[in-house]
């Protein structure tokens, strides 16, 4: 099972690369946020996988839980920016 988990986690890392590409190329901040959010949800899975790889999953669950809870605070904060800043000044949204 360990090797399955190991390759799964490597595959997840590859998926994170894909998400990271979206986060890097944008084009808008919101696209980046989508990318980062996707990275976050994959990280949660990856954390548990690492827990299995260490055979100590009970210790990693807490981290994953905290992650799942807090990951969306950052996204909310960033989206909140647009709720408040709407039309306040015309900074280029696009590059």
């Amino acid at each position: 099972m360990d090797s399955i988990f190991l390759y799964s986690s490597l595959y997840l890392a590859f998926l994170m690369v894909l998400s990271l590409i979206r986060a890097l190329i944008g084009p808008t901040v919101l696209d980046r946020m989508i990318g980062v959010n996707a990275i976050g949800s994959k990280s949660v899975v990856l954390l548990i996988l690492i827990g299995f790889l260490y055979h100590r999953v009970d210790m990693f669950v807490d981290i994953a839980l905290a992650y799942a809870m807090l990951n969306f605070i950052a996204v909310l904060a960033a989206s909140r920016y647009f709720q408040k800043r709407k039309g306040l000044y015309d900074e280029a949204l696009y590059r």
Binding site: D58, M59, D62, I63, L65, A66, M69, L70
Partner: peptide, 17 residues
């Protein structure tokens, strides 16, 4: 729930991360 989890984390620092 987030708050409860936070308190859990504080209380269980001895046994888990």
């Amino acid at each position: 729930f987030v708050q409860l989890f936070a308190l859990y984390v504080i209380a269980h620092g001895h046994h888990s991360p």
